[in-house]
Design a protein around this nucleic acid. Structure first.
Lengths: 414, 414
DNA sequence: ACAGTTTCCCGTAAATGC
DNA sequence: TGCATTTACGGGAAACTG
């Protein structure tokens, strides 16, 4: 039987969207001497909220269930809650927790589990709770929420510090760069290489106003600002849906700045191009190529970024193959000759072309769906407190273990 | 203040989707001598269902409201119910109304309004109800539901014959053709011309199995059957979103059969092409052109149908302009020369081209959004029982008028 | 197993609230 | 008023159900 992860968003645990069902599971780690009585577990959302939290949620459906012996494992007791849903409790004390200091994606919540049983005349209360959770109401808040989850688990060992974002610690670049790379490695067969990380770091520091840990807004884009995390997520989505083969071949430089781009291209053969993500549009990829004018001047050209809409009409490799400009003579010509530094275009992309003719140009061939390598990503070297490997476990299934040793206490993964 | 139509689907009144809010309004047609007391109106869904209806719905929210003097009109009383929603009442008598004879989109429902007041010591009950309504749970049922609504209002004058589809009458071709054309005219500046209607009629009779009034399934497509109404709606949607300029110019022949297509094209100049909708794919448009081989044989070529995805990446007129095939010589050439019968391509489409260069081919120009003519459509000549003009009224606002003359009786539009 | 029907939920857009 | 957040719902797909 399929066991869905806690939230339905794959790859993004610990984020719950209101009105969307989620699943959770508790397991009793020790075997009880007698299991012939029913052990009820009650799950409560936002049981003990610290002051200053402005929203409180609850689970409107039945939240009590009896533990059962796990069918596949070592016979320990467990219970899985399915089809849980969150609703907001309006007006907790008077009128909302007024402190609008934190954004909703920085507000941390928790899911508590309680069980009570008597063993040899002794009444024992068990209680445990989840790692901090972020509650959102729209997928547009997913990038911010995910940033919070990563930040928390990257920077603290505390099992339940719901006030974490009241004074969030800064991450070192080595910590930050590892999660950045790890995110790419979870969806493709490779993460970020050293050059990409350096360029991304420069972009992060140079182009975004890092006025707060996740409040980095894009400076050059005052009209429609977006945070660094939104921008990064839009790129991850674009890779996942439309650029996997090209990304896996390491053909996307990605995070190069416009200045660096010129430096790299200016001494290259005419027709040398590189691929990078758009800075001004969310989820866009573009290419820049170098040309030499007759008088010897170096010229750089870029295309309008390709977004998911255009890429779903024509795969990116085919766009590169078919791209044409009308030159002074009237014969359209493809200006893209060499992928930086000097790989002939067809040598690089030949295997990635889908139809020999573009489907928008010719009728006969129907376009076969591209074969995508979805083999699971190798983990980066782990680094405390939370490593990518631990995150993988989180992704696989979110389990909250009740440890009978720490009676009434809290414990988390381990 | 904006006054939303009954369902939120624009252009498709009398269809309600479960879980989606709708609005309705009742108006008292006569002025009462004394209006200084509160006149409450209660609205009930599926109040008196005939036997054999398998689903029954109700409005879970507050369904009683006080009438008020209309602000803009002649001072008559009216009340508008907003944010109404439908839920299914499970198991009406025992286990569901077992007769699975009708599909959900053929099952008719109604919304009743009741009011009671005393006038000079006389207690007066008012009651009226809506025209038959179709209740759906997913937009995928919209085409079938809309077909039912059209069929009912086209073929009967009865205000509330909820058993209509137990034995639905057949429509004459003149009746059917008029609603077909009218649907096109509501979204564009023109409906169907005589040739298009004839071709559509032939297609309807020849290509679909007309085993029941709306159960026409596509014969050549056994794998994924779709009804005539789904097919037609997919075309209407495609025109509305992507083909308006081309459609308004009358450049889309549309419903020509493949045989007729060859007959029309074979004696034309090489490079003559025509535009028609796909028969095998929902919401697709394609073009066919004629070529002469060296040995004098006539050859016909068609493209894979363009669907909304590809059309949203590149407007259709630009596709026609930029379409190329790799001929035996390696220079790509556009085989489209003359729009049938003999209009030079650029003469026909020149004004409809958006960017001089295709945005997928060249970087510099950003593609301006196409200017679309959305002027309201002129009505076709009305024909009883329901005319397009009446439908326009329906669209504008669905009103159920309580007529104080027919006490306790039913009446409908008029 | 299967087809008709409903539910689920992402992603965009609009509405709401502060 | 502007921004943050929630609600609405179309559309594709999965789940349900007789």
């Amino acid at each position: 039987e399929k066991q869905p992860c806690m939230p339905t968003h794959p790859q993004k645990p610990l984020i719950i969207k209101t009105g969307v069902q989620f699943t959770t599971k508790v397991r009793l780690l020790v075997k009880l001497p007698e299991v012939d009585y029913q052990l009820k577990v009650k799950t409560t959302f936002d049981k003990d909220l610290p002051p200053g939290v402005s929203r409180q949620f609850f689970i409107p459906t039945n939240n009590t269930k009896v533990m059962d012996i796990e069918d596949y494992s070592n016979g320990c007791l467990s219970v899985e809650f399915r089809h849980l849903q969150l609703k907001e409790k309006k007006y907790i004390n008077g009128t909302k927790g007024s402190e609008g200091l934190l954004s909703v994606t920085e507000e941390l919540h928790s899911l508590s589990f309680e069980a009570c049983f008597t063993l040899q005349g002794l009444t024992i209360d068990l209680e445990t709770c989840s790692l901090p959770l972020v509650v959102i109401s729209n997928v547009s808040q997913l990038p911010g929420g995910w940033a919070s989850v990563m930040w928390y688990n990257l920077l603290t060992n505390e099992p339940r510090n719901l006030a974490f974002f009241g004074n969030p610690p800064r991450a070192s670049w080595s910590q930050l760069s590892e999660v950045l790379s790890w995110q790419f490695s979870t969806l493709a067969s490779r993460g970020l290489n050293k050059e990409q990380l350096t360029m991304l770091g420069e972009k992060l520091l140079g182009m975004f106003t890092l006025d707060f840990w996740n409040n980095c807004t894009w400076e050059n884009n005052p009209g429609k600002p977006f945070s660094f995390w939104m921008w990064l997520d839009s790129i991850l989505e674009l890779i996942k849906k439309h650029l996997l083969p090209v990304w896996n071949e390491n053909y996307i430089m990605g995070f190069v700045s416009k200045e660096m781009e010129r430096t790299l291209l200016k001494d290259r053969q005419p027709g040398t191009f590189l691929l990078r993500f758009s800075e001004s549009h969310l989820g866009g990829i573009t290419f820049t190529w170098v040309e030499h004018s007759d008088n010897g001047d170096v010229k750089f050209n870029s295309v309008e970024p390709y977004t998911k809409n255009r890429l779903s009409a024509l795969p990116f490799a085919d766009i590169i193959r078919d791209y044409k400009v009308i030159s002074d003579g009237f014969v359209p010509e493809n200006p893209l000759k060499f992928l930086y530094p000097d790989i002939p275009k067809d040598e690089a992309f030949g295997r990635l072309y889908n139809s020999h003719f573009s489907p928008s140009l010719v009728s006969f061939p129907s376009c076969p769906s591209s074969k995508v390598n979805t083999s699971s990503a190798p983990c980066q070297s782990p680094e405390p407190p939370m490593t990518p490997g631990e995150f993988d476990m989180l992704n696989e299934q979110l389990c909250f273990d009740i440890d009978s040793v720490s009676l009434g206490g809290l414990n988390h993964f381990g």
